[in-house]
Write a protein that binds this DNA or RNA. Sequence first.
DNA 1: GTGTTTGCAAAGTGTTTGCAATTTA
DNA 2: TAAATTGCAAACACTTTGCAAACAC
Lengths: 147, 147
Amino acid sequence: MIATYNKKKAEKDHVPALLIERGIRPTRQRLVLATLLFDGMHKHVTAEDVLAMVRRRRERVSLATVYNTLHQFTKCGLLNEVNVDQARSYFDTNVSAHYHFYDEETGKLTDIPLDSIQTECLPSAPDGRLVSRVDVTIRLKKKEVEA
Amino acid sequence: MIATYNKKKAEKDHVPALLIERGIRPTRQRLVLATLLFDGMHKHVTAEDVLAMVRRRRERVSLATVYNTLHQFTKCGLLNEVNVDQARSYFDTNVSAHYHFYDEETGKLTDIPLDSIQTECLPSAPDGRLVSRVDVTIRLKKKEVEA
DNA sequence: GTGTTTGCAAAGTGTTTGCAATTTA
DNA sequence: TAAATTGCAAACACTTTGCAAACAC
């Protein structure tokens, strides 16, 4: 959460560079999405969220392109996909190691800084596998008791 | 994983009791599913997996009923839903506290006993919320390097 | 110019639902 | 028999795909 991030400069320099240095062509659509997503604030977004942000800015990117681009950004490490709800995909602009609160009622995701959790004693990966990622999700429910 | 579980006895006594004591009517379909799922071996299944098991046994339960029943069983604590892949829902017959390896290539889930992981220092739930569950998934990829 | 990317609409996937017929207690 | 449950098929929500037009280098 870098509150005093210079957004204008980010748009002019960092964003195209971000794509180019990962071998992604900085097309108009990709720049729109990268500018919206990588503004210095961490976000958890769905494809529909992104489309809504695009339209709020009076830009035009199709839903198909939003999906394609989110997956490209994920593949090259600019985004993380978060699996908490089978019904929809969340993408996290915070790609550093951290975990999540997931509010089952509202569907809201919140970051938990890594140092709040102790994860030294993780078992090692079996046979010919490598650990790709460790996902920790603390699912939250209403305080009212019910099962 | 209770290898020497007496399946015949389970079918005759435990399975209907399992449903009745949770206020679920032991209909033919529910008994078929409960018998398949709660045979003493822990399983990670999708709705399609369950339907395939049903047919292998020459039983008849519709896909809609499989879904309804899996959700009922989940609601009353007989199953746990596992969120690892946005494309499909997995249900876990092991409802005790434990975590998972998820093989991103094969889609296979494997249990990790709780004591392999150290989770004392979890942050507490915010505001008016309670922790519903803590999900820990260690995602595995092929050993071959590729980002 | 040439290969890449886009947008649309159509297809696909897993899941849920409406409702008449069936089953359970 | 009254209420709950089932099965089918249609509806659904989200996501992916095929392909012609537009674009980037």
